[in-house]
Design a binder for these strands. Sequence first.
DNA 1: ATTGTCTGTTCGCTATGCGCACATTTATTC
DNA 2: GAATAAATGTGCGCATAGCGAACAGACAAT
Lengths: 251, 251
Amino acid sequence: MADHVQSLARGLAVIRAFSAASPALTLSDVARATGLTRAAARRFLLTLTDLGYVRNDGRLFTLTPRVLELGYAYLSSLSLPEVAAPHLERLAAEVHESASVAVLDGEDVVYVARVATARIMRVTISIGTRFPAYCTSMGRVLLAALPPPALDAYLARADLRRLTSRTVARPAALRAELDLVRARGWAMVDQELEDGLRSLAVPIRDRSGATVAAVNVSTHASRMTLPQARRDLLPCLQATAARIEADLTHS
Amino acid sequence: MADHVQSLARGLAVIRAFSAASPALTLSDVARATGLTRAAARRFLLTLTDLGYVRNDGRLFTLTPRVLELGYAYLSSLSLPEVAAPHLERLAAEVHESASVAVLDGEDVVYVARVATARIMRVTISIGTRFPAYCTSMGRVLLAALPPPALDAYLARADLRRLTSRTVARPAALRAELDLVRARGWAMVDQELEDGLRSLAVPIRDRSGATVAAVNVSTHASRMTLPQARRDLLPCLQATAARIEADLTHS
DNA sequence: ATTGTCTGTTCGCTATGCGCACATTTATTC
DNA sequence: GAATAAATGTGCGCATAGCGAACAGACAAT
């Protein structure tokens, strides 16, 4: 492949070999996880260690906080996370639930801001977390705003699978859901990503009216019925989106 | 240099060329910022674009949310940010000021969790933000906990410069400050990082008693006097640290 | 039209990064 | 403790991955 720097691609794969499930890896772990030879994996790990992105205790390699620098460039270049943050804090304090902002990236939503009040999911959510767009409230909001060709392309590409017994995974049913989102201006997703997880999202629009992100509140089925969620959360959520939009217009 | 993959180091430098000040760059901008030839810069940008970390509108290159994935591995592998997040939300709601958690990395503190109530600094703080340890409240807490040889090494290495007229930048004076921090168990930094910025930090310790992070609240000089800050913020901060520590013990 | 700047392309070249084989160290099993 | 297995470290010949240079084409400014 012309104009492709294989060593960079391989080195980045080494960074991605680390995860919540595997925070600390031996040289051989990394080689296995990436498919590289031990000698190559070692060279990449040593390079990353020299650069300060990885540390080594003599046996196990771990990432250092410096890798955040690679994502920080993205976060700091977006006004959205910074503008949204105080509004999310206010929203979370008001409704006593976790609140987040995400953008669409490929087939996923990516969290770019979050205030967490309590953990209600099996997995950790933090900045950078990705979930499939089709079965998340923020993803629904963002997909609903796509132009038809882009939505067609998404549906053609996306791996629509059921994650729970309630996941809407058939393209026709998903399109119907998105029609509803468009009509109402908000999305409620009930236990489609994970059993027990309920979330409600509304769009964040820029001055031209284009949906650029979504803001949501998530709760647990044991805490709130669907009508309660709508009644109690939707007005606050819409007000928060409006405030974020107003502030984005000034930045 | 043996065992050093130059292309990886160069490719990572290309990612770091993007910043809040330069969110979108042309090929020539990247080449200038990194010192690479245009041909090399182009190859790296095309590789990063193929991998999904960079996008291009025909002229300007920008980072995509996917670069967050490179730091997410670090964040998700640490229990601290996840454990701290709801406690920070509560603290921020209680004192109506921004609250953060940071760790020491080299000469800097790096923010790993944060709930922002309002912006009080000239620059954006988000996850991944780095500031010099010596003139920040969390940095002081973390430095105070270093064993003497490590503190000596820090002072030998660190570029101690005055950032404001109040910055304590002489090694002897800084040592005296750190003695105070040790004696009191908290650090107050008043307008040493930036005019107007006041912050108060306490340590977060693990079960062995080692300081592993710091938690702080930051305010503005126009909002709170020093005695008020101490009176109003310190008890909440210490309680928050205790709660975080208790939760860390269980994870 | 001319000039300057930027981006894309091609290509010969070489040095960068490769994998392999072996040595050494560490961990595991009996 | 001894033997074995697994993991890591090292050196090296080699070839190809990545290099920079030069040129062409596109675009912007005068």
